[in-house]
Design a protein around this nucleic acid. Structure first.
Lengths: 406, 406
DNA sequence: TTAGTTAGTAAAGGTTACTAACGAACTAAT
DNA sequence: ATTAGTTCGTTAGTAACCTTTACTAACTAA
């Protein structure tokens, strides 16, 4: 069976049984008809595809508001009240939308009945594999509110063992979910292709591991696997309110990033977009990097190196050192910010290291190396999502993939 | 009347008369129903929108092939033969598609009748305003084959005078077109927003000039105005066969670029994507730039500066100087290539300056400053479109906007 | 009490693309 | 030459979808 077959089986109408996961199969089946990505890009549109699109649009609108009537929805999305009623009645049958009762305020005319997404009626499982010492996972509701947490220590486990650790963590989380699970999202380090195959993740010893296929097959749940930094960028977009042209920089043992252009994640020609850790910074050398080159961004900015800088220096020298690391980041980012005319750059990583002089150094450098007239409206800030940024991104990917919502 | 109104009028069903341009208004009207962009992103899909999408898809498929039967189209696009026949019969009525007669080869079954886009039955007008000394324009057929050329000298004209020069050039070209014109594309320097308003073009003295609106209004033709480098990137994508993740660098008096990600042009948060000319390169200073900073990319790479370098040096020193300019370009590009995982970078500009040591210097620098494992499959090359790159890009924008073809 | 407004539903209609079935026109085998 | 099989394009009927039109229900304001 190919990965595609598995995907179709796990997310299509032919799911035979999902009893072990506690998901009502009828609901899962119908809900999947809301799939936003169901119309392959550049493919023909049949009436059912149009319907799916409109379903997703209504769900999206409901998701972003809280409490809209059918008439509100009609005005918002541009369909007629009749059509909206029809769509909503499907949603109500499926349990995806709930009736909040009559709108309280006093206006002329028949009072509206408010509707909302059944935000706590379903669960999503999100995993973060980016820390090679411990895999962390959560169960959230549709709003991304964490209701369960779990983690497994994976100090140094690699290959199939690491895959088994993922399975174990999922088993745990899925068992603890009380509401039906609409999907699983997993942020993995390394290069991940569009099918959710981990092409290469050196830290985990993975090469061409079809993780999405494996998880979907084993747990019979719609699954999304993507690069951790890309997922973080998605998380910041949806739950952190970042703009449509932004970049998220993740600083940890290495330095990675996720790039969003026009509201869409960038994958790149070889699914390696965002991998900026080993780009040489500046024209004045720099320390030797593990990759063989000298002066890579990771040499300046990885958290071990920053920790060391902080430990070795006194207060003032420490601030200067952090500022310099920030400047190096700014030097790398300037061409990217200019080429993409980014509106926002967000940093994620150890707050104590990044949030002070480092961030200022980056901001200052970006200002001095780009044209203020063109790129002056750039916002540079820390993430507000904390350590959950990757798992929340995974949740967003599931929401987008299964409901067309983000 | 707002710009939006003008747009709707010029490209919608309410065009009253287009007699002076030689376009049959009925045809123009019907053809516009093929508009690919007619469904606003994120908006509801009605049956007619689905139809438009499918129309565009069929046209696109025909455009890329040469000579397909209805049955071929059905297989290719995924619609049934019945539906294809229906769509094709519309196209035949509108004159957009022509019957090539029966397929010559001998196979079992009823012989197929081949169809093709009526490639020479319609014209497109493309303008390039990027040279502030002379505006150049062409009339092409749907294949981008130039059938007429014209230019006007505009040495130093600015503001309304420059707009009038555009009008005069268009008047000339439109008068010379023999086939009905499906649209006008204009590549302008400076910042151009999505409505085709030139937000700022210092060389032409333009600020907030609604050029697209003005041209559409005056000539009653669907019009597309965009940044010159962005149009060049579009041209290279379609007629130069560039890949879906690429960047086109234009070297002239200044340095600009167009960025394509996932097959789509990047506009950026302030429509200033691609403006990399005034990003500081390296950490070792550089000559003072007109913008006030030192060591901008434009200081190293603008064609006047390169001309000067070539003039002042002997053979060997010249090569080294050109190579160094190339290296500077490579230093700027490395973070962009890595962040976007670009598959291709294309240079456009004076061939004698760019094609030799400069290109080699850039390639070498990109190799040495990025990770070969990730970005090793990058292609760096000169454009094959020559001086017509911008006007051809303008033609592509019209094709895409009016027929959904590219 | 009446007029006006708004929400939601019902019935009918038009568009779109589908399936099923067929004739036309060919090749290949007998 | 006949027959079988294939492929093309069309016709007829159907299902899905959204719309328009028209209605009832339920409220506010005068």
């Amino acid at each position: 069976m190919t990965i595609e077959d598995a995907q179709r089986r796990s997310s299509g109408a032919t799911v035979d049984t999902v009893a072990e996961t506690g998901v009502d199969s009828t609901v899962a089946q119908q809900r999947n008809t809301a799939l936003a990505g169901a119309v392959p890009a550049g493919a023909r549109v049949r009436p059912e595809h149009a319907r799916r699109h409109n379903r997703a649009l209504v769900l999206q609108t409901l998701y972003r508001a809280n409490g809209l009537s059918r008439a509100d929805l009609a005005r918002e999305v541009g369909l007629t009240r009749v059509t909206i009623s029809d769509l909503v009645s499907d949603f109500l049958d499926e349990g995806l939308v709930i009736d909040l009762g009559i709108r309280p305020d006093a206006r002329p005319g028949k009072p509206a009945t408010l509707l909302d997404i059944n935000r706590t009626g379903f669960s999503i499982v999100g995993l973060d594999l980016s820390n090679s010492a411990v895999f962390r996972g959560v169960v959230t509701d549709l709003d991304g509110v964490v209701v369960e947490r779990a983690e497994v220590s994976v100090g140094g486990t690699r290959g199939q063992e690491a895959v088994d650790a993922v399975f174990a963590l999922l088993e745990d989380l899925i068992g603890r979910a009380t509401a039906p699970i609409i999907g699983v999202g997993i942020g993995s380090p390394g290069i991940v292709d569009l099918d959710g195959t981990v092409v290469s993740a050196p830290n985990l010893g993975w090469t061409e591991v079809p993780l999405q296929h494996l998880v979907a097959e084993r747990f019979k749940l719609p699954t999304q696997v993507a690069n951790d930094a890309n997922m973080a960028a998605q998380g910041e977009r949806s739950f952190g309110g970042a703009s449509t042209d932004m970049m998220l920089i993740r600083v940890g043992r290495g330095v990675g990033s996720g790039v969003v252009v026009g509201g869409n994640l960038v994958y790149g020609s070889g699914f390696a977009a965002g991998e900026i850790g080993h780009v040489v910074v500046g024209t004045d050398g720099g320390e030797k990097c593990a990759c063989g080159k000298s002066g890579c961004l990771e040499v300046w900015l990885s958290s071990p190196r920053l920790e060391q800088v902080v430990a070795e220096h006194g207060d003032e020298a420490r601030e200067a050192a952090l500022r310099e690391a920030g400047e190096r980041l700014g030097i790398s980012l300037a061409p990217i910010v200019a080429a993409l005319n980014l509106g926002e750059v967000v940093l994620a990583g150890p707050h104590n290291l990044l949030a002070g002089p480092l961030l200022e150094g980056t901001a200052e450098t970006l200002r001095s190396r780009t044209m203020a007239e063109l790129h002056g409206n750039l916002t540079l800030r820390m993430t507000t999502l904390g350590r959950d940024i990757v798992v929340l991104g995974a949740v967003v990917m599931v929401l987008t993939g299964q409901l067309g919502v983000s």
